[in-house]
């Protein structure tokens, strides 16, 4: 029995996607903690952008439940209108952004709008884009984090809220998107890397198995030639995660 939660594994993997010195749209939930881990380990000069108008070069002093918590405002290097940070994103000033979703497909398109039925009368109404579709459209790199099961990893999403690679290579250019696309999909079971616009399984978590990943994915996933188990987070990284989220509000919640 490995005493690491899927949430902790995902945070540790997500942190590795942040490079030192990058400006990153951090978003909500697990990515908030990934930003903390990156800042305190390999990426001390990373800068976090929050769509409500905040730019931070130091993580907030306490666990955030939303990006608008008072602790995320206090100590920020800048607090401007949303249009200014979204403008930086549209200009191409932002290297990476995080996003989650209810559904993702093999080409990295995400649905957070609705499942089944018509838009105005869906079977399941989801909250919507928020800033997710903007990050997916405009960041240079997109890091996707979400729970993994057959209802979520589907062959084709029913509604593209946040554009990935559409139907494959060349699609983003055809529709007029200026840059970007998903680089990685981190799930509760493994890590997919996008190659030629398609998710390729790179690792499966030691809490899961290759068979479980296959059985839980709505398409037959391509496997990296050296597909292997996900490296466990170091003691240092786990200490950071558990120190920041001691009750496991985000990292040990049921998905």
């Amino acid at each position: 029995m490995i005493d690491v939660s899927a949430g902790e594994l995902m945070v540790a993997q997500a942190a590795r996607e942040i490079r030192d010195g990058e400006k990153v749209f951090v978003g909500m939930r697990l990515p908030l903690i990934a930003f903390v881990v990156a800042k305190r380990t390999h990426a001390p000069n990373a800068v976090g952008l929050f769509e409500l108008g905040l730019v931070r070069d130091e993580p907030a002093a306490e666990l955030l439940y939303t990006m608008g918590d008072t602790a995320n405002v206090d100590g920020a290097m800048w607090c401007g209108p949303m249009l200014d940070v979204m403008g930086m994103l549209q200009r191409g000033d932002v290297e990476a952004g995080f996003i989650g979703g209810a559904e993702v497909d093999r080409h990295g398109n995400l649905n957070t709008t609705a499942i089944g039925g018509e838009r105005q009368r869906p079977a399941v109404a989801l909250p919507g884009s928020g800033g997710g579709a903007d990050i997916a459209s405009l960041a240079k790199r997109l890091i996707v984090i979400m729970p993994h099961d057959r209802r979520r990893l589907v062959e084709r999403v029913s509604f593209i809220t946040s554009p990935g690679y559409g139907d494959g290579p060349g699609w983003r250019e055809r529709v007029g998107l200026p840059r970007g696309g998903p680089s990685v999909l981190i799930t509760t079971l493994g890590v997919f890397r996008f190659v030629d616009g398609e998710a390729v399984l790179e690792t499966y978590h030691p809490t899961a198995s290759l068979d479980e990943v296959r059985a839980s994915t709505g398409w037959e996933p391509k496997l990296a030639r050296d597909v292997r188990a996900t490296e466990l987070p170091s003691g240092e990284v786990l200490d950071i995660i558990r120190g920041y989220d001691p009750k496991g509000f985000w990292t040990r919640r049921e998905t």
Partner: peptide, 13 residues
């Protein structure tokens, strides 16, 4: 005018 949401289904919806 904007470059966001090109390729998204949000504009159609």
């Amino acid at each position: 005018p904007t470059r966001t949401l090109l390729g998204s289904d949000i504009p159609r919806a």
